[in-house]
């Protein structure tokens, strides 16, 4: 079974994907995760997840080109400047 490992570098930080490995079961996965991602003090915590339990989504429909949904849909900078001018504190 393949396990995906997520690693937290410092307390409070977000977990980030560290890598993956084969292991015959949970106990092996825990041991291997410790060896691969924990023994050099590079992590303060690990999440170990069987790959099959990861819900993956890769299809995102945007048939009508609604760019205003996207973060690059319009320039926030310009709008922010105008708003500030209107408020008189540019």
């Amino acid at each position: 079974m393949i396990y995906e490992v997520f690693r937290q570098e410092r307390k409070g930080q977000a977990f980030q994907h560290a890598g993956s490995f084969h292991a015959p079961g949970r106990d092996f996965a825990e041991t291997y995760a410790r060896e691969f991602y924990g023994r050099r003090a590079e992590s303060v915590a690990l999440w170990i997840v069987p790959r099959d339990d990861v819900v993956a989504i890769e299809d995102f429909a945007d048939e009508l080109g609604r760019t205003y949904h996207r973060v690059d849909g319009y320039s926030l900078k310009g709008k922010l400047r105008e708003a500030r001018e209107r408020a008189g504190n540019a």
Binding site: F21, H22, F28, T31, Y32, E35, F36, R39
Partner: peptide, 11 residues
């Protein structure tokens, strides 16, 4: 016997 074990046993 397999890569993961190789690393673990070496460690």
């Amino acid at each position: 016997p397999f890569l993961e074990e190789d690393v673990a046993f070496s460690s």
